[in-house]
């Protein structure tokens, strides 16, 4: 088990808690009456790494597109960085970096040129949000270096691998040093090494104050990176919770022992459940329990506080709902 990602809690604490993404009753009906998103109330706070989980087709991408003003909500309210979307898109979006449903670039142009063109196509940047025209080329170079494309930035995108394109998409999102990163499946197509690099990059960005909204169907990715979880199931938000709280120790201790039968006999009523060599013990301090078992000559191969896994939570939430609300 890994500990929660470092840094995020501390950096969020210096700032006054500020809601960065807020939706109320966000609903999107597509033609034909398909309710892709159904009454979602999202809340993402500044400094969060928000993991937006859901199976394919659960409405993640539609929600992300609504947040960015690409898809217009049927009803509900959206606020991003404190302003209404999509109405205030012109002032909100320059402060947001986004990667939506895979990267896209002009194949005949180089990666660097793509970044420069994308930057130039928008309104002239204001304030310290990434400078003006003059340093555009420098910022593109910097963004490429950040995602590890420094060496290939001058090659046409046509020849890029899927992973390189993914990195280029990230570079485009990072180029203006946004306050909020909205990333839809950012590690798609990357090799394990690439995934680790991107994870480290995002953690580093988060430490410097960037809020990250990460939509993914990969539990591991979310578990390793995120501080808050939102779980989407068939268009509805079924869970929205800090990851630390979800994975807090349950108060039980897991004991794995080749002498499970003897251990169960010794602990008696404290054993809640036994499954082969594995015991669930309640109401015990792990250290005390360990000492007691060992002193009784019981071999212990594993012992530790029980923590719930994200996979189980996800499974439980989605299964329960599917039982309750048949569609």
């Amino acid at each position: 088990m890994r500990s929660a990602p470092p840094g995020s809690a501390e950096s969020a604490a210096d700032l006054t808690p500020e809601v960065v993404i807020h939706t109320e009753g966000l609903t999107k009906l597509f033609a034909g009456g398909v309710r892709a998103v159904d009454g979602i109330d999202l809340e993402v706070q500044r400094g969060d790494v928000y993991g937006f989980l859901g199976a394919n087709g659960s409405g993640k991408t539609t929600t992300v597109r609504c947040l960015l003003g690409l898809v217009l909500a049927t009803s509900g309210r959206i606020e991003v960085l404190g302003e209404a979307m999509p109405r205030r898109g012109a002032s909100v979006l320059p402060r947001v970096g986004a990667l939506v449903e895979g990267p896209a670039a002009y194949g005949h142009l180089s990666g660097h040129r793509n970044l420069v063109l994308q930057d130039a196509s928008g309104r002239r940047p204001q304030g310290q949000l990434g400078g003006g025209r003059k340093d555009r080329g420098d910022r593109a170079t910097e963004a490429l270096a950040q995602v590890g494309l420094g060496a290939v930035g001058s090659r046409p995108v046509r020849g890029y691998s899927l992973g390189m394109r993914q990195r280029l998409g990230l570079a485009a999102a990072l180029m203006r040093q946004p306050e909020l990163l909205v990333l839809d499946e950012p590690t798609n197509g990357l090799d394990p090494q690439g995934i680790r690099e991107i994870r480290e990059l995002l953690s580093a960005l988060n430490r410097t104050g960037t809020t990250i909204f990460l939509s993914s169907h990969l539990l591991a990715e979310v578990e390793q990176l995120c501080t808050r979880i939102g779980l989407l199931d068939r268009g509805q938000l079924v869970l929205q919770e800090p990851l630390a709280r979800l994975r807090a120790p349950t108060g039980r201790v897991v004991v794995v022992s080749p002498d499970a039968a003897r251990a169960a006999a010794l602990l008696g009523g404290c054993v809640e459940h036994r499954d082969g060599e594995r015991l669930l013990v309640k109401g015990a301090e792990p250290a005390v329990l360990n000492a007691r078992l060992v002193s009784n000559g019981i071999r212990v191969s594993e012992l530790g506080p029980e923590r719930r896994r994200l996979e189980d939570i996800v499974e439980e939430r989605t299964r329960r709902r599917s039982g309750e609300v048949p569609r």
Partner: peptide, 23 residues
């Protein structure tokens, strides 16, 4: 994908452990 070596029983895994906001 999951690093935890444990496999917990879902039924006993305190259903009310987390206060969640459901849809």
């Amino acid at each position: 994908m999951f690093l935890s070596p444990q496999k917990l029983d879902l039924r006993s895994a305190g259903a009310g452990a987390a206060v969640t906001r459901t849809a």
